[in-house]
Simulated assay, not measured.
Amino acid sequence: MLDDFVEQMLTPVTHDLGGFKVHRTLPHKARTMVGPFLFFDQMGPAHLEVGGGIDVRPHPHINLSTVTYLFDGAILHRDSLGTEARIAPGAVNLMTAGRGIVHSERSPGDERAAGPMLSGIQTWLAMPETVEEIDPAFEHVAAARLPVIEAPGVRARVIMGSLWGATAPTTTHAGTIYADIALEPGASVPIDAAADERAVYLAMGEATLEGVPLEPRRLYVLRPGIAATLRSVRGGRAMLCGGDAFATPRHVWWNFVSSRRERIVEAKRAWAASEFPKVPGDEKEWIDIPDVPNTVSYP
């Protein structure tokens, strides 16, 4: 039975952003974090109109790291550090907000000309209290630098942390595991019990966990200490995420995350007062602070 090895199954809230959908399984009313992961969004898959694309205007973050990972398409990232970085499938964009950063995400011009594809996962990771206010930073890790574990019918890319005897070079601020697992028909892969908290997410295709079918776009939080086998009969793509459990909660309001409510209040004031830095090359637009955010806020 699923309950023997799954602690919770989290169903997504789906947002239609005009041309593509985002399926959000974290945060959830039943659970706010899995290890350091506190947002888990699947973007697409979608084929956008010719000449169109995504245009996420400049907006701020504090006290978190964002991790962007694509299956298809490309995104151009710009931030207030002066970074301009294009991400392609299999690579990682890691942005550490620390004491504060502003960024934008847009479809590159060459992608727009053909009608952009968009498919991927974007997550937010909480930061330990001791490093929440570090200097902001950006890190791009090319696909070729991320370890890939291959076995018959299996190709698993380690995005963050250590799994299956391999370690990704991606910076982590807390114990973190994160991997992209592609299974051909009939293939299987072990999910070990090493991390405090772990979850499996079926992004596309078909898979079972210990013989129990998984539903797409659900986050299956595994029971601590339980090893399991992920298997696919017809082929599938799954994400494994988790890491060290956080002893203290994180407060979330709009794009702001912190261990302290008063820090979020200050960030709201600073963004409304235009005190955050601008994004070079993308200074003309921004997202105004909402009266009521359309993201989940807690506690």
Rank of each mutant, 00 (worst) to 15 (best):
P60E: 03
G109T: 05
Q122P: 14
S107K: 08
R86M: 12
V131Y: 07
L70T: 00
G98F: 01
S65Y: 00
P116W: 04
E111M: 15
I62K: 00
I75P: 02
I62P: 00
E132I: 09
G53Q: 10
M127H: 09
N93P: 11
S119W: 07
D135P: 12
A142D: 13
I101L: 12
T83R: 04
L118N: 14
S119G: 10
E139L: 13
R86W: 12
S119V: 12
T68L: 02
V67E: 06
A85I: 09
P116S: 13
P116L: 11
G120S: 11
G100N: 04
H61F: 15
I75R: 01
G52M: 02
N63H: 03
D110N: 15
D55W: 13
P128E: 13
I134F: 07
M95N: 08
V102N: 00
L125D: 13
L64E: 13
E133S: 09
Q122S: 11
H140N: 05
A91Y: 02
A144Q: 08
D79R: 00
M117R: 10
D135Q: 04
R57S: 14
L76W: 01
L81Y: 11
A143L: 13
D72F: 08
G115T: 01
Y69M: 01
D72W: 02
G109M: 10
R78T: 15
T83F: 05
T68C: 03
A74F: 00
Q122F: 09
P136A: 06
N63Q: 07
L94P: 10
I134T: 08
F138D: 07
S119C: 08
G90D: 00
L94T: 08
I62F: 02
H59L: 03
A97K: 02
D55K: 05
A142M: 15
H61E: 12
E105K: 03
S107Y: 02
G82I: 04
H140E: 10
T66H: 04
V131D: 15
R78S: 15
I101T: 07
A88D: 15
I87T: 09
I75H: 01
R57A: 13
E84W: 05
I75G: 02
L76Y: 01
E129R: 11
R57M: 05
Y69H: 06
A74P: 02
E132M: 14
G82N: 05
S119Q: 11
G100D: 02
P89V: 07
D55I: 06
G120E: 07
T96C: 03
E111P: 04
E129V: 08
R57Y: 14
D55N: 08
P147E: 08
A113K: 15
F71M: 08
P147N: 14
S65E: 05
D55T: 07
G52N: 09
H140V: 09
T96R: 08
G82W: 14
G90A: 13
G52H: 12
V92W: 04
V67Y: 02
P147R: 06
I62C: 01
T83K: 15
I87E: 06
V56K: 09
R106K: 08
A137C: 06
G53Y: 12
S104C: 10
G100W: 00
G98W: 00
T123I: 11
L94Y: 12
